[in-house]
């Protein structure tokens, strides 16, 4: 087994990634995680580098629609798959209902966990239009937030789910 002291040879690998609908041909160090490729090669800093070892969920992205921890995923595992980051959740001028709802309810405070939570929540709502509070809690069980106590986050996701079901804007429901 190679020891830590032995400097390994840096290897740059040619990798094709599909991120937020765009295809990129990249030269990436072979030992990069998907998160490192997203942040340091593609400049997508929405997914956060929190614990960096799979505990906190701040790095959550969707891999073929499945919430995935990009900080512990070797970048090669994303080849041939659709990667969606928070930057690809919606167009800049038309936020996702979840983004509106988080804004309206105060679902984000410091915001560090928010992009990961939005990705977990987006996958939940794609699979389940009317999640119960318990189902929302289960879906977010790998996303740690240390600011909000989660209540506003749950409210935001419920508001977004209702808005998507009724095809209305979260603000209209919030006001009503």
């Amino acid at each position: 087994m190679a020891s830590l002291d032995r400097p390994g040879e840096l290897l740059i690998e040619a990798i094709r990634l599909t991120v937020n609908g765009d295809t990129h041909d990249l030269g990436v160090p072979s030992h990069y995680t998907l998160l490192e490729a997203l942040r340091y090669v593609l400049g997508l800093t929405g997914p956060k580098q929190g614990c960096d070892k799979g505990d906190c969920g701040a790095c959550t992205v969707l891999l073929d629609g499945v919430p995935t921890l990009s900080c512990i995923l070797p970048v090669q595992e994303a080849i041939g798959k659709e990667v969606t980051t928070i930057e690809g959740l919606a167009a800049p001028d038309a936020p996702h209902a979840l983004q509106d709802a988080f804004d309206l309810t105060g679902g984000a405070q410091c915001g560090f966990c928010t992009s990961g939570i939005l990705m977990s929540a987006a996958a939940l709502l794609a699979a389940n239009r009317s999640p119960t509070r318990l189902e929302i809690r289960e879906a977010l069980a790998g996303n740690l937030c240390r600011c909000t106590g989660y209540t506003k986050i749950y409210e935001a996701i419920e508001l977004a789910a209702a808005a998507l079901r009724e095809e209305r804007m979260p603000a209209e429901l919030k006001g009503s």
Partner: peptide
């Protein structure tokens, strides 16, 4: 002697980040 298999990597990758394993080769199984 210089290789480890990796499936999900959810334990192996954090362990490698902690310097517990440093194989020159990884063989992906998924």
């Amino acid at each position: 002697g210089d290789v480890l298999p990796i499936a999900g990597g959810t334990d192996l990758v954090p362990n490698m980040k902690h310097g517990l394993f440093a194989p020159g080769h990884l063989v992906a199984l998924k």
